[in-house]
Design a protein around this nucleic acid. Sequence first.
RNA 1: GCCCGGAUGGCGAAACUGGUAGACGCGGCGGACUUAAAAUCCGCUGUCCUUUCUAGGGCGUGCAGGUUCGAGUCCUGCUCCGGGCACCA
Length: 711
Amino acid sequence: MAQPYPVHVIEARWRDRWERSGLNRIDLDTVDSDRVFYNLVEFPYPSAEGLHVGHVFRYVGVDAFGRYQRMCGRAVFQPIGFDSFGIHAENYALNVGEHPRRLTEQTTARYREQLSSIGAAWDWSRAIDTSKPEYYRWTQWTLVQLFKAGLMYQAEAPVIWCPSCLTVLAREQTDRDGTVCERCGSPVTERVMKQWFLRTTHYADRLLSGLDDLEWPDRSKRLQRQWIGRSEGRDIDFGDLTVFTTRPDTLPAVTFIAVPAGHPAAGSTRRHPTSGAPIPVVVTDYVVESYGTGAVMGVPAHDDRDARFAAEHGLPVSDAPLLDPVDAAAVGRPSVRYRMHDWLISRQRYWGPPIPIIHCESCGAVPVPEEDLPVVLPDLDDIRPTGDSPLAECTDWVQTTCPSCGGPASRDSDVSDTFVDSAWYFLRYPSTEFDDVPWDNVRTDKVLPVDFYAGGSEHVQRHHLYARFMTMALQDLGLVSMAEPLPRIALGGMIILAGAKMSKSRGNVVSPDGYVAEHGIDVLRCSLLFSAPWGRGGEFSDRSIAGIERFFARCWRAVAESDGPESAVAQWDHTISAVTRAVERMSFNVALARLMEFVDHVRSAEDKSVLVRLLAPLAPHLAEELWHQLGQPFSVHDQPWPEASSDGAAEVQDLAVQVDGRLRGRISLPRTATGEDAAALARSNIAAVPAKDAVKRVVYVPGRVINFVSR
RNA sequence: GCCCGGAUGGCGAAACUGGUAGACGCGGCGGACUUAAAAUCCGCUGUCCUUUCUAGGGCGUGCAGGUUCGAGUCCUGCUCCGGGCACCA
């Protein structure tokens, strides 16, 4: 469908002008802290398939929101970057036989181009890339700080191992409930290795209580609470064997103690702490070694699982009376357990920041001195897995001297989890030009916390939690002043195709490129935003494109043409407040609907700039062009957001007339009319309204309904 | 198993805090303009019944109840779809 204007010429022209004029950048040195609006969206992992329309949907919603904030007078800081380290890139590189660095350069370049083409007001001058030494230097620095503070430690832990691929797998790289390797289908095994952990459990209570004050979706808070999984109970000693229970009142009815296979006490007995009776310690398949004390009281009379197990194995059931609350509260010792574990950050992989630790026979684990950072990831030719970390093969790199004693030592050959990269990246954006500190405290205090963080629900348990943990830890170390970096989060909906999330492996990725080439980015932006509320998402469809193109053409003509006498338009107020409300709650579909209703009135309007300004966050290029056509100075995006001049109460509106709650007609009168006026008007216009003495009650809701109740 | 979200025309959806269900758009049908087409514009478009052709009425937001003058919205019990956690003591 042809537009009445040259779409691509206009879009290219204005995007170029915005970039040259620095429209999307703010001066962080001179800006007033109160005006800063840090509008952040989770930075993408640059995958090989390129940006798809689901990304575009998420990003343009965030962009529209940021542009709106800017017109409301905020100094919007809207950076973007690339989360380019990680297993996904590494695996893809292995599959196609390329080096991850080269592949990442390609995919990042393509992402940069696509992200630029969507017309979002990114501040590209502050872009970050987690796989670049100038970034991961500070990721490593952060780990060194945590290590020095005792928040990073090494311990033996099981990892998932694929005996066929000779590699450690992440849980996400397994199929069928973590039992087989997703790449080769072989059954996976467990292997115990020494690994690095961050002490997230130390912050469990603060991570939990901090949630109360956050402006997050209830869903997010619930998921994080569930993930942290705080559970209060008692530790009870059965001799040398301690159990954890949340039901100390059932202690008298204990008939066995359940432990997992391999437990040293399996097969023995312990004395019951109160009755002294011998209690067998039995192996069950339902006790988790790593939770609680790894041993559980078996109470068949009060627990279904214990009852089933007792029945199957001929164990006795006790009907001893339960303890009353006072006695129960005196049993054992109070104990709090968490489902959340410390964060295992070691990855026996290649494509990540080397863990900045040197192992020395005499000094133990020594952090790399800050002046020696970054520990640069060596450029290995062959990163195919051999059964050990790829970096361990690189002996020139591994062999080093101990920073503490100067003796021979070796570098840790693991890399850190990608989630470490993204746990602090929001601190880096405002300080990208500093190469002597990870972030400048004046900058950080001015710009953070993030005013609006737009993410996906897939990141609630991990990324959002790790970001909070990291910030709390850094606060305790005196390195940042805030505890909560992301006080306001909104979760964007996902765009799916044929019922599934878009991904290359499913072969259902829809690229924005074709649509942009054919219709321009503003049309794609608005048709995506029009098809569903931003927070919901849904099945991808290009059906709304035709409607958006017609709407744009009507906007163009409404501005370019005039008919009849020009007059002030009373309906502006209604439209302005409706669009404002819709944008505030990210319902851009409704904002567009209200503008569509209104556009034809603009032809005879005195002040057409209102339409153009309301359109600016949604269709930034078209609005800029229309603004220019109106003879207004560059840029529409610097203009104030229109304000409604009245609440519209005096306007004549329709009022529903009901009898006993059933609709019987409609009358028109201002919302300011009294109940008497409304009742009289209804009675004279609508035959179904009963006589006065037959009415027991009249319910009048101004502007909505008048209901005559006869029963 | 536990927790959560969702279900509204042919389709995407709207409905502020319990107050006119289906805004807006797509698609469809009919019409105007045109030699014709495209584009554009106008009208109709949940469903059933009655009709003096102008309307009037019944039903209708997954199902069954309830509260209320009034329920898509609140409550109870279900069905289906999506998501999270999962032998977590």
